[in-house]
Nucleic acid binder design. Structure first.
Lengths: 151, 151
DNA sequence: GAAATATAATTGTCTTAGCAACTATTTGGG
DNA sequence: CCCAAATAGTTGCTAAGACAATTATATTTC
C-alpha cells in the first residue's frame, strides 16, 4: 500500500524550468547545427553584437553566465573568428570584446532561427500567456539574483 | 549612430528559461551542499523514491534527461550508496532501479530544501501567477517534446 | 606613497548535457 | 525458426556550468 504524500516534481518551478529549458535549447541547437555554433555561444555573440566594446564581466552579466564560462565561450568565438578581444587602455585587467564581420554575418543569418524557436514556444499559448511567462521569468531572474547575493 | 532594431534576448523564452533556471538551481545547490548531492542527482533520486523498480529509460523520461546522462547520474547515486540497480528477469537488457535506506533518509531530510527553494521562487509572485507559470512550463515541455520528435 | 583590499580574467576539477557509436538483448516479419 | 530491426544501456567526445584558486592590475586606506 502506497500512502506516501506524492509531492510531484512537476509542481516544482526549479525542476520544470530545467526540463523545459533543455528542450527549447535542444530545438535551437538542432537548427543552429549548419552554422556550427551552440545556443550558448550564440547568446554571448548576440550580446557582443548588441553592444561593441563590452568587457567580459558585463557580457557575463548580460548573458546570465559566470565569468569562467564566459571566458571559455569567448575563447571558442575567437577561435572561430566571430569575436575579438582587445586590451583596454582604461583598465589593463580587462578586455574589450568586439564582433567581427563574420560574426555579424552569422548573427544576421541566425537571428531568424532564434526567433522561430521562440515562435514555436509561443505556439502552445496565447500572446497574453507568453507575455506573462516572460514577465514572470524576468522577475524570477531578478529575485533569485537578490537571494543568491544574500545567501 | 545606432539604428539597429534592438531585439532584446530578455523577450526570448529560451534565453530567459536558461538564465532563470541556472539561478534557481544554483540556490538549491548551495543548500544541498551539506548533503553532498547535486540538484540533478537529487531529482533523479526523487523519481526513484516515488516509484521503486523503474527502469532507466523511465527514470530518464520522468526526470527530463537523456539516457547517457541518466546512466552517469545513477552511477554517482550508486557509488554513494543511495540507489541500486538490479537486473530484470523480464528483460535482460534493462535494470530495475531502487532506492536504499540511506537514499530514502536523504530524501526525507532534503525534500524540505527543495520545497523551500520553490517557496523562494514563489516569493516574487502571487499564488495565481505561480500556478500559471507551472501550467505554462508543463505545456512548453509537452509541446517541445512533440516538436523535437518531428524535427 | 606603500600596504592591504578589491576586481577582471584565467585555469583546473568535477558534474551535467547532447550526440554518435557500440553492445547486448528482444521483437517481428518472412 | 531465423534474420532484420528495434530497444536498453553504456562509452567517448565536446561544451557548458559551478566552484575554488591563481595572476595581474586597480583602488582604498593609513
Amino acid at each position: 500500500m502506497n500512502n506516501k504524500k506524492a509531492y510531484d516534481l512537476r509542481r516544482s518551478a526549479g525542476f520544470m524550468l530545467g526540463t523545459s529549458y533543455r528542450k527549447v535549447s535542444a530545438l535551437f541547437q538542432i537548427r543552429l547545427k549548419p552554422f556550427e555554433i551552440t545556443p550558448e555561444q550564440w547568446s554571448v555573440l548576440y550580446q557582443i553584437h548588441l553592444e561593441d566594446g563590452l568587457i567580459q564581466k558585463e557580457i557575463a552579466e548580460r548573458a546570465g553566465k559566470d565569468r569562467p564560462t564566459t571566458t571559455r565561450i569567448l575563447d571558442h568565438l575567437e577561435q572561430k573568428g566571430l569575436a575579438d578581444r582587445r586590451t583596454s587602455d582604461r583598465d589593463r585587467r580587462s578586455f574589450q570584446v568586439g564582433i567581427t564581420d563574420k560574426g555579424r554575418e552569422l548573427i544576421l543569418k541566425t537571428l531568424p532561427l532564434e526567433m522561430a524557436a521562440n515562435e514555436d514556444v509561443r505556439g502552445c499559448m496565447s500572446e497574453e500567456e507568453y507575455d506573462t511567462l516572460i514577465r514572470l521569468l524576468i522577475r524570477i531572474d531578478h529575485h533569485m539574483k537578490d537571494i543568491l547575493e544574500r545567501e
